[in-house]
């Protein structure tokens, strides 16, 4: 499924979203996979949170069903 990217992460990974099969994977495993695919973005991925259907979840969160929306949220800087 499509995973949304933003700001510095979108720039460093050079795309607005990526397609990944997330079923039965944890958030931590998905972040690790992204790091392997995009080693130059390691620091930013490690510091990013993940939002599932617009709620923050921890690294232990397991995708037992496919959500509507997943986003990688690099450290925010609004205001």
């Amino acid at each position: 499924m499509k995973i949304l990217l933003f700001a510095g992460l979108k720039d460093s990974m050079e795309c607005e979203s990526i397609d990944l099969d997330v079923l039965n994977q944890s958030v931590g495993q998905i972040k690790q996979f992204l790091i392997e695919q995009h080693p130059s973005s390691t620091g930013l991925i490690e510091r990013s949170h993940v939002a599932v259907d617009q709620n923050y979840v921890g690294n232990d969160f397991l995708f037992e069903i496919e959500p509507k929306e997943i986003a990688i949220i690099p450290p925010v800087s609004g205001g």
Partner: peptide, 26 residues
């Protein structure tokens, strides 16, 4: 808001360079 809301700022510096702001909260 500054800690939790998914909004990001990009600095456009006077030398023309740009930089996304991703505070190191750790």
């Amino acid at each position: 808001l500054k800690e939790q809301v998914p909004i990001w700022k990009k600095e456009v510096w006077s030398d023309g360079s740009t930089e996304w702001v991703h505070p190191d909260t750790t």
